[in-house]
């Protein structure tokens, strides 16, 4: 089977993997000239389905709980399994109780344990929640690793190519995100920063709860920290606004004053494709299967969606063969 994957974002790369390991001849076409620049490029890379359940519906937990294993298998060495630490300032202690009551898979930690987990946060928070089953990765490194793995598996990449001009494929897998023409899809703008400082180190993603400005900090290599992310009902991909930057920086500073002296290494804006229920969809129409609406859960949910798309295509294929077979038998009878 010859499969054309349209789009080399997180949905496209994971789909390419799932089709390739099932024996399809896969080509990935991407209009950009290299990896990156799409919504997944600006992602946090948290594999945190239990934390996400605070505001997301149950399918996000069900579909996302195996994501860390998937990434570990597809891109060995990319996943860090150190859990997620959730903290709140003493005056927002109620937020911690609210978060705990909406989620599972966590345990309460006190000041001493927070110090053991993250020595640089010593004395800053009296109570927190640890989600030990969660993991994280660096989205850009993971995407590059997956790209290399796919290339080694024989997947052909065509960058700077409009997939509409390519033909000769049995199936098209539309993973073009916001570029897909789907009336139900909307953009949700997310702004993020990358800070660099030698003054603090963290071993795992830390979420700081705040009634108005919740924030997460994901540690990355080379003393970098991804600070994210805003959620604005807008499809604008324009530069980060001053207000969003102030909110992100202010909250990072509240997590640890050392961030006040950090370098702002990068600012980024991604527009997340989302359906009205904020849940992803795999949809088939003719020879095209689309994967879309990953919203803020690209790295978490793309593996499960890629599997669903591959299952759908291969089971349809079997049904067709069976139908064909029955048809032939009928004719010969």
């Amino acid at each position: 089977m010859r499969v054309l994957v349209q789009g080399a974002g997180i949905a496209g790369l994971t789909a390419a993997f799932e089709f390739a390991i099932r024996g399809a001849a896969v080509t990935v076409a991407e209009t950009r000239h290299a990896l990156g620049g799409n919504a997944s490029w600006f992602a946090g890379g948290m594999l945190a389905p239990w934390c996400e359940r605070e505001s997301a519906e149950q399918p996000v937990l069900d579909l996302g709980r195996d994501a860390a294993d998937w990434w570990d298998t597809a891109t060995p060495g990319q996943v860090t399994r150190a859990g997620t630490l959730v903290v709140a300032a003493p005056r927002d202690a109620g937020e911690l109780d609210r978060f705990a009551s909406r989620t599972s898979g966590h345990r309460r930690v006190d000041e001493d344990e927070i110090t053991l987990l993250e020595p640089d946060l010593a004395g800053r928070f009296r109570r927190g929640l640890l989600f030990p089953g969660e993991a994280h990765l660096d989205p850009r490194q993971a995407m590059a690793a997956l790209h290399d793995k796919l290339a080694a598996m024989g997947v052909e990449f065509r960058f700077g190519t409009d997939a509409r001009h390519l033909s000769g494929f049995d199936r098209r897998i539309d993973c073009t995100g916001m570029a897909a023409e789907d009336d139900g899809l909307r953009g949700v703008r997310g702004e993020m920063l990358i800070l660099r400082t030698l003054d603090i180190s963290l071993s795992r993603p830390v979420r700081l709860l705040h009634p108005r400005f919740p924030l997460y900090v994901v540690p990355r290599a080379d003393h970098r920290f991804m600070i994210g992310a805003t959620m604005i009902e807008s499809q604008s991909a324009g530069p980060v606004t001053a207000r969003s930057m102030m909110e992100l920086l202010g909250t990072a500073y509240a997590l640890h004053p050392a961030f006040g002296e950090a370098e702002i290494a990068e600012t980024g804006v991604g527009v997340r494709p989302a359906f009205p229920d904020n849940l992803p969809r795999v949809e088939a129409s003719g020879d095209t299967v689309s994967i879309n609406g990953l919203y803020r859960h690209g790295f978490l949910l793309a593996p499960a969606m890629a599997r669903q798309a591959a299952d759908l295509v291969f089971s349809q294929d079997r049904t067709r063969e069976v139908a064909h077979e029955t048809d032939r038998q009928r004719r010969s009878a």
Partner: peptide, 13 residues
């Protein structure tokens, strides 16, 4: 206020 950055970028919502 926040959704109208970039003109009518909040139109979908």
């Amino acid at each position: 206020r926040r959704e109208m950055a970039g003109g009518r970028a909040g139109e979908q919502f």
